[in-house]
Amino acid sequence: MTVLATYVPRDSPVHRLPAGVKLTGLVLAGLGTVLLGRWWQSLLLLACVAGLYGVARLTWRCLAVQLRAVALLVAAIGVLQIVVAGWERAVVTCGNLLALVALAALVSLTTRTDDLIEVVVRGSGPLRRFGVEPERVGLLVSLGIRSVPVVARLAGEVRDAQLARGAATRPVAFLVPLVVRSLRHADRVGEALIARGVDD
């Protein structure tokens, strides 16, 4: 799981904060940015988030990798904003956007996936009356994480079979067997879970 996860282990106060606290803070920050309307407020927010990366003892590279995914899009929005609404508005929109993305990424970088799963399982408790069972949510999460490499392997097998038959890699000829094999795999997993008495 650690191979897949974005978590970066460090010994820092940010890492030690409970996952629930960090998630709550993120939601509050998200709501709070709606109130920021001045360009210097947005820059201040960005500086604060960058400071938190320092407190978490994460490198600039960590931050850059996280922001790279949205950089192009934010740049396009920035240009559009400058043309349509002026540079101050552009700084506010892009600054708030970047700060929130960076802050959300900070939570992911400093919180182990297991801890987040625990918050999800605990958080799904109140959903019990809607038919959600917290124990099953935990099972589902670990099952889902383990299913990713399995389905990736199935995809590799389908591709190999296609190449062996000399068939071109047409999307339909790839997707249909992949879906059918995934259905069969789910059947087997279901049988195995029932055999282990999961469906009490």
Partner: peptide, 16 residues
């Protein structure tokens, strides 16, 4: 339980 297995498998399918 079967639906649970389908949910997990096809979440993985979308991921792949």
């Amino acid at each position: 339980t079967r639906d649970l297995a389908l949910t997990a498998t096809f979440a993985a399918f979308i991921a792949v």
